[in-house]
């Protein structure tokens, strides 16, 4: 699973990043780099991390995800974690990891709706 295989798609002012199923540590680190670069490049306000294929989310992977969310936030963007598998959610919780205040959604569709709703709210302010 190489870093190049991470797909980053721009979609209606949002970025959609699909996380590979079983990435090695280098790919996980590369993911963070790519996401931050893309956020800067597209001046995007929202990020959807699609983790629906991820089978194992250990503490290293989880920490990188949480860090990425925090960094994106510092750059003025909102992140939604989408599609975590039920067994992964059970395991992550039991492992004792908290994903902080990271927004979550059942799937990519709902994640996009969520970010769009946030954006319109933001406009009103």
């Amino acid at each position: 699973m190489s870093a190049e295989s991470i797909s980053v798609i721009k979609l209606r002012g949002l970025l959609l990043v699909t996380v590979p199923a079983d990435p090695d540590d280098r790919t996980v680190s590369a993911l963070q780099e790519r996401v931050l670069e893309a956020m800067a490049e597209h001046e995007s306000g929202g990020l959807v991390l699609d983790i629906s294929t991820v089978q194992t989310l250990d503490s290293f992977f989880a920490r990188t995800v949480v860090e990425t969310v925090q960094m994106v936030s510092l750059m003025g963007g909102r992140t939604v974690l989408a599609g975590m598998r039920a067994n992964v959610a059970v395991t992550v919780t039991q492992l004792g990891l908290s994903m902080g205040n990271t927004l979550t959604a059942l799937d990519v569709d709902r994640a996009i709706d969520m970010l769009n709703a946030e954006a319109s709210k933001g406009l009103r302010v």
């Binding site: 540590d25 089978q55 194992t56 989310l57 250990d58 067994n87 059970v90 395991t91 039991q94 492992l95």
Partner: peptide
């Protein structure tokens, strides 16, 4: 079962790391 497999694999991931 699937959830137990995930638990075991995740533990192994932590300990090999």
């Amino acid at each position: 079962g699937l959830t137990d497999v995930t638990r075991i694999v995740t533990a192994a991931s932590e300990l090999t790391r």
